[in-house]
Design a protein around this nucleic acid. Structure first.
Lengths: 341, 341
DNA sequence: GTGAAAGCGCTAACAA
DNA sequence: TTGTTAGCGCTTTCAC
């Protein structure tokens, strides 16, 4: 543990060990070059002095900061998400094992999706970026890609076939298909899709899972879907709409937990019990709300921990110029079954 | 916007502006020293070249990293919190305006509350820390304080009268007292406290608000309280216990949203309507769950945005050796009224 | 008001 | 295998 003692430098350690500064540097960066006894002597000096190489000096010399930039956006309230916590922890934790740290920044102008990146790059404050805000499409990703800045995206470059950067994404299609299977196994046949506008690539991916699997199972989809925005209120209205019909669905498969929460509101308002014996409800994200809501919301859990690991792996590859020819990872979400099914 | 163009340095700019490197440096750090026309010429060169001072070089020279370390803990699931997002954004945003950045790190050994700090300090990777994990008490705060490391805590140093470091905290007492007023105004008289164990300083602070205000209002408290841990299940059991009594409370004032969510579960199980006409429920934190749960949970909102601002202000004071003689800020949470009252 | 010199702590290249 | 030299890009004296 540090104390008030003056911070040790290479010179201090070198003197203590009776070697030159360079030898100490080698002990740290290329220990195989040293004779075992010299190495031991140097390591002991490092230990007793509590020496840690000065970051700024090392960064200056090696032209690398070992820092990864991540732009944080204002937390969206009123939606179930709140997934950032989990992802961030996983990212930071994995970065530690890769001798990297995460530097957070915000935009001066929130409406400029490119704001902030260039400054950090020009001042060599970071070596690379992680880009996460892919839900709304991401101009930052294409800009970084074009400028050959090292970065990894959480989220596919939907609709940008020329993109060449590494990315990690979640298989919404497969996840929702698995949810269909689950509902069918539970005896459901009339399974409605409560989705987003068709302008959302992610929404379309998820919807595709419903459509494909329902069709495979020989179940009807025509007329069994609704579209809207990612709000609780839309989920509520959509559920009411569907349940008002003469032939009402027995299960609501929702594009997000936020929408699913709205559906649960609607059920409560109609005095319908969610889950077995009532109407099944499934969400997507496994947000905190899903875990805490009254009967427990069945939901597709984002594999954020694995995503963090994969992001850092690809980042390391990129930074060390290792070329993965297919630097893309798609991970499946896991269905977490709770009270609503 | 950067391009592929080589990154500009002081020398590049100096040449372009026809001055020496030092003059460019002065233009940046002490512009008042330059003659207006020289300054203008230099600034134009900086602009056209897109020059940004190299961080590593500046850090090395000035012995300051302009980085603030924040240790992130694994996200607690199954609790309503999820407040980190909001706090983090506010912190990072305010840091930007103070020419600071936030560096995230994790502990190698999660069980060692001190792990990670010393390394960053020794390697001069950060200038200061923000410490947030004060809910469980914080050894890191006292260690940093003892070693005279610049840092600001979010959370009071409960039970450590010798602590001298700056901190920002939320007035749980005042918040809960306001909630009592609110409930009384709504006609409630039998208001039970669903709290934490008395080993939690924060829990005791909040409970104190209930106790004091109830007493002031001439309402009974004896026997109207329960204690337990911060889980949904405890909240559920506590609510059942209280509502089983011959003289049952008409409102449940809960120490956290997590506990309040449990209470809502219990009400649902008993077929009791939360809110007016049924049983009032109030939580603490204004978590996402509070916003999304069926009738909307009335809750005390943590002023995280202001907290971030105050934390950075105190941090700046500390880093620039400005001595605030009372570097402590206590902010009141705001009661957000929703369906459950 | 501007410029020259020195050096922060480190590592890459080369010499011994 | 170890030591010497040089220099990363910046700021801080101190001359001019």
């Amino acid at each position: 543990m540090a104390g008030q003692r003056p911070v040790a430098t290479l010179a201090t350690v070198a003197e203590a060990a009776g070697v030159s500064r360079q030898t100490v540097s080698n002990a740290l960066n290329s220990p195989e070059l040293l004779r075992p006894d010299t190495l031991a002597r140097v390591q002991e000096a490092i230990e007793t002095l509590g020496y840690r190489p000065n970051r700024a000096a090392r960064n200056l010399r090696t032209r690398a900061s070992h820092l990864v930039g991540l732009r944080v956006e204002p937390a969206l309230e009123g939606t179930a998400s709140g997934l950032m916590d989990r992802f961030l922890h996983s990212l930071v934790e994995t970065c530690r094992t890769a001798d990297l740290h995460v530097l957070l920044f915000t935009a001066e102008d929130v409406n400029d999706p490119l704001d902030g990146y260039d400054g950090l790059l020009q001042s060599a404050a970071v070596d690379a970026f992680v880009v996460t805000d892919t839900y709304r499409g991401n101009p930052a990703a294409s800009w970084l890609d074009q400028h050959q800045v090292p970065f990894v995206a959480f989220g596919r470059p939907w609709g940008e076939p020329t993109a060449t950067h590494p990315w990690v994404d979640v298989d919404g299609h497969a996840g929702v298909a698995a949810a269909v299977d689950h509902l069918v196994d539970r005896g459901h046949r009339r399974i409605a899709w409560v989705g987003w506008q068709d302008t959302s690539f992610i929404g379309e991916d998820r919807r595709g899972g419903w459509l494909a699997r329902m069709t495979e199972r020989g179940l009807p989809t025509e007329g069994w879907e609704l579209r809207g925005e990612d709000t609780v209120d839309y989920g509520r209205r959509a559920a009411h709409d569907l349940l008002d019909r003469a032939e009402a669905p027995t299960a609501l498969l929702c594009v997000s937990d936020t929408v699913a929460m709205g559906a649960l509101h609607a059920l409560a308002e109609r005095g319908i019990h969610p889950g077995p014996g009532g109407v099944g409800v499934v969400g997507f994200d496994d947000s905190l709300a899903a875990q805490l809501v009254t009967p427990g919301l069945t939901s597709l859990r984002q594999p954020l921990e694995q995503i963090g690991v994969e992001v850092v792996r690809l980042l390391k590859d990129r930074l060390e110029l290792r070329t993965s020819d297919e630097p893309h990872v798609i991970l499946s979400p896991e269905l977490v079954v709770r009270g609503t099914t």
